[in-house]
Amino acid sequence: MVTRRQFLMVGAGAAVLLTAAGMYQGIRERRVAAAGFAQGPLDERARQIVGALVPVMLAGALPAEPSRRVTVARVVDGVGEAVAGLGAAAQEELRQLFALLDLAPARVLLCGLWSPWPQAGEQDIARILERWRFSSLGLLRAAYAALHDLVLGAWYAREESWPAIGYPGPPEVA
C-alpha cells in the first residue's frame, strides 16, 4: 500500500520531473520531423514499455502461450500504427511520455518501479496503472487514458479479438 504521505511525495516529485522533461505546455521541444521516425513511431524502448503494459491491460482477453507472446507483439505493432495516425502534436507528446518513462529516475518516481520495464511483474504494472488512473495530477490521468485507448483500441481493432466478445464482424455487402 502506498501511504498518503508517500503519495503526496510522489505527486510533488512527479510534477517536478514532468516539468523538467518538458511535458508541460510552454516548454517547447524541437519538433521531430516525419523523417525522425526511422523505426516507426515507437522506438525499441517504447515498444518494451508498451509490451509490458499490454498483458495487464488485456488480462483475461489474450490467448494462452504459446501464441500469447506473438499476440502481444502484434498488439504492440498495432499501438505503433495507431500512434502514427495521430496528429503531429499528439505523436510528439507520446514520444516524450515514452522517453520519460524510459528514464530510470522517472520510472521510480512516477511508477514506483525499480526494475526495467521488461522485468516488471504484472502486479507492479497493474498497480502503476491504478495509481495513474486515480492520480491527483491531471497529466498522469491523461497519460493513463492515452495508454488505455491505444492498447485497447489496438486489440479490439484486430479480428482475432472479435469471437470472444461475440462480434460477428461487418456484414458482407456486394
Binding site: L58, H148, L152, G153, Y156, A157, W162, Y167
Partner: peptide
C-alpha cells in the same frame, strides 16, 4: 463498434474484459 466501445469504456484488465 468494438474499438469505439472498448476505448470509451473505463477500466482495464479482467474488469474491462468482463
Amino acid at each position: 463498434h468494438p474499438v469505439l466501445f472498448a476505448t470509451t469504456l473505463h477500466g482495464f484488465g479482467t474488469n474491462h474484459t468482463a
